[in-house]
């Protein structure tokens, strides 16, 4: 289920603007990889190329190879819609479908894949909500609209929705930045559970969070505004935060800039 990701010589452009340059990295299955770095360094852009969500912006294109278990997701015959069905994504802003019930939110992805069997949908709904640590809180209001939950619950609902389709990879784009500390803790605990089954890539502004949840950390930086962002280094989280090889990483994690 969980798959390996390889980025080889990846360059990302928005029209004429060179957004990210020459990224090479590997994410191994059943691990958490965190991307950190200052605003505008391209970490979210790189994350969004992993499920081709960046293509929603006109003029965006990718050079190089992004391989999912060896298969290039940018191959000519590969459809972006098909890619996204196997790669789950959780966004900065909790975004459940507000008028859909909690249950329908969770199984929305399955329904897109054509699953109609009600028994199966109910099973997956419960399993996903349990997996997202939300089952106890919402089991009595599965038919209430998803927009009625609290922010932290909504974000866990979005995680349940993402894992309901048993994705190969789970992408998280600053999943806690709109949440209070207690909800943040709940999500971080959840990430620790989820990595037993999924390959997780998370973008975060919070370095402590990266240190807490990830096995591997990549530091992105940019030389100046308007210049492309690049991956400064990527290594075991422990090593990045205790003994980085690059001076820029050292400066960033010690709070000297950024």
């Amino acid at each position: 289920m969980a798959k390996r990701i390889d980025l080889k010589d990846v360059d990302i452009y928005y029209g004429a603007f060179h957004a990210v340059q020459n990224v090479n990295l590997t994410v191994i299955p059943r691990s958490v990889t965190a991307f950190i770095g200052p605003s505008g360094c391209g970490k979210s852009t790189v994350l969004r190329t992993l499920n081709r969500m960046h293509e929603e912006i006109a003029g965006a294109r990718v050079e190089g190879e992004i391989l999912l278990d060896g298969e290039n997701i940018y191959d000519r015959g590969t459809d972006a819609v098909a890619v996204r069905r196997t790669i789950g994504m959780v966004f900065q802003m909790p975004n459940p479908f507000p008028t859909m019930s909690v249950r329908d939110n969770v199984v929305a992805g399955l329904k897109l894949q054509g699953v109609r069997d009600k028994k199966k949908l109910d099973e997956v709904c419960e399993a996903s909500l349990r997996g997202a640590n939300l089952w106890k809180e919402v089991k009595d209001r599965l038919d209430k609209p998803g927009g009625g939950l609290s922010g932290g619950q909504q974000q866990r609902l979005c995680i349940a929705r993402a894992i309901a389709v048993q994705p190969d990879v789970l992408l998280m784009d600053e999943p806690c930045s709109a949440l209070d500390p207690i909800s943040t803790l709940a999500i971080e605990d959840l990430i620790a559970d989820l990595k037993k089954e999924y390959t997780i890539v998370i973008v975060t502004h919070n370095m402590q969070q990266a240190a807490r949840v990830s096995d591997q950390t990549g530091f992105f930086n940019l030389e100046a505004t308007g210049k492309p962002g690049h991956l400064v280094e990527i290594d075991d989280t422990e090593k990045i935060f205790s003994n980085p090889t690059q001076q820029a990483t050292e400066d960033y994690i010690s709070g000297r800039f950024g």
């Binding site: 499920n51 969500m53 929603e56 819609v81 098909a82 890619v83 996204r84 069905r85 196997t86 789950g88 994504m89 966004f91 802003m93 975004n95 459940p96 479908f97 507000p98 929305a108 992805g109 897109l112 894949q113 979005c158 929705r161 993402a162 389709v165």
Partner: peptide, 15 residues
């Protein structure tokens, strides 16, 4: 329509 709603659907692989 809020962008994040559209992205939610697209990220699930909606046509």
């Amino acid at each position: 329509t809020p962008r994040f709603q559209i992205e939610a659907a697209k990220a699930l692989g909606a046509t």
